[in-house]
């Protein structure tokens, strides 16, 4: 028994209403599949594990506590030793003239 098309369309309409989809009897490409897709970004950004508590963050949270950062202390000690031997980093140049003085080449000299 053939079912009239109008009746089938009515059924489709009801179906769309119930399941909350778009009524599209001509089957036009409306791009709704893009809207149906879930966002992948939140899952993708969780691929690499986040950085957990660092000494710096712990200090911010518990300001009264004495927390030892061994690597940082070691770094400071190494700097102190290097400075004592005269091998420390040069002082920061604050102005343009100061920095130019050292880098300026004399006119007769060729670049080595």
């Amino acid at each position: 028994m053939a079912v009239p098309r109008a009746r089938i369309l009515d059924l489709m309409k009801a179906q769309c209403r119930i399941f909350n989809t778009t009524y599209n009897p001509e089957r036009l490409r409306m791009g709704n599949k893009v809207l149906r897709q879930r966002l992948r970004g939140p899952a993708m950004t969780e691929y690499y594990p986040p950085r957990t508590s660092t000494i710096k963050k712990l200090r911010e949270k518990y300001p009264g506590w004495h927390l030892v950062d061994e690597r940082e202390d070691e770094r400071f000690e190494n700097i102190k030793i290097a400075k004592a031997r005269g091998k420390g980093a040069p002082k920061k140049k604050r102005t343009a003239e100061e920095s130019k003085k050292n880098s300026k080449r004399k006119p007769g000299q060729a670049a080595s």
Partner: peptide
């Protein structure tokens, strides 16, 4: 990954317009 997450809604909106 972070940049993609930020821009994903915009990209999806554009993709919807293109496919409609």
């Amino acid at each position: 990954r972070k940049v993609f997450k930020e821009n994903e809604p915009e990209r999806q909106a554009l993709r919807y317009i293109i496919r409609n």
